[in-house]
Amino acid sequence: MAGFNAATIVLALRVAQTVLALITLGLTAYVADWWGKYWHAISPSQINFLVFASVWTLFPALLYLILVPWRFSETKLHHKFAILGMEVLTMLFWFAGFVALAVFLSDRVCFGHVCSAAKASAVFGAFEWLLFAGTTAMAMLHVLRTRGRTSHGGKADPNLNIQEGV
């Protein structure tokens, strides 16, 4: 039986992050659409922020975090601090988003499918935050382990490259 290496674990986490971002995007888009149809108003900023966090996760964040280590590992784009920065920023977006929505929903009288979708999006947002907290911790450990080394020129650890796990 083959053991899991770091690249396989990172790839599995990236797939889970993508799936949760898509689920959260669908749920929050449904709530935002319902809010506009039935309240004839702009949806709450907490819902809008989770829509933003989902789109941010899918396009700039995961696109960078998957493609750059996979295809551009020998370029300046693949830098350990750039990867850490993207991880930290995305993790903070998810933390702020799910907490804001949970607080918003905690003191509202809420029922029906739209309420269930809003609550589910807060829960999926929390799980997404946990996944990004895990990958952020991995990136932080890599930065701390390679502190002071000049042999890689600041590049990320080749063991964390996606291409080795595929």
Rank of each mutant, 00 (worst) to 15 (best):
R149Q: 13
F72N: 11
S73V: 03
K37A: 04
W70Y: 12
A156L: 11
L160H: 04
T24R: 11
R108K: 14
K37E: 12
H142G: 07
G165A: 10
F104W: 04
Q46S: 09
K37M: 10
Y64T: 09
A16G: 10
Q163G: 13
T28Y: 06
G148W: 00
E74T: 10
H142R: 13
F72L: 15
G153Q: 06
M138P: 04
N48M: 11
P60D: 08
A7H: 01
F72P: 09
S116E: 15
L89R: 02
H79R: 12
H152I: 04
A137F: 15
G165S: 13
S54G: 12
A2G: 12
A122R: 06
V15R: 13
A100N: 02
V103K: 14
H79K: 13
L101K: 06
W129M: 04
T135E: 04
I9D: 05
S73K: 10
L89K: 05
V143L: 01
T146P: 02
G125P: 00
Y64Q: 05
A126D: 03
N159E: 06
F124W: 06
L89T: 07
R108Q: 12
L160Y: 12
A137C: 12
L27P: 07
G154M: 04
T150M: 11
F81H: 14
A2R: 13
F127D: 02
T18A: 13
F59M: 13
A139T: 00
P60E: 04
L25G: 02
F93R: 00
A122K: 01
M91G: 02
A139N: 00
F111L: 13
K155N: 08
N5M: 04
V51P: 09
M91D: 01
F132E: 01
D33M: 14
G153P: 10
A7P: 05
T24K: 06
L144Y: 14
S45N: 14
T75R: 07
T24Y: 05
V51K: 00
I47S: 08
I66S: 06
L11V: 07
A41F: 09
F81G: 05
K80R: 15
S43F: 10
F49C: 03
R71C: 08
R71D: 06
I42W: 11
H113T: 10
A126K: 12
L144K: 15
T75V: 03
A29Q: 13
K76C: 03
S151N: 14
L77A: 01
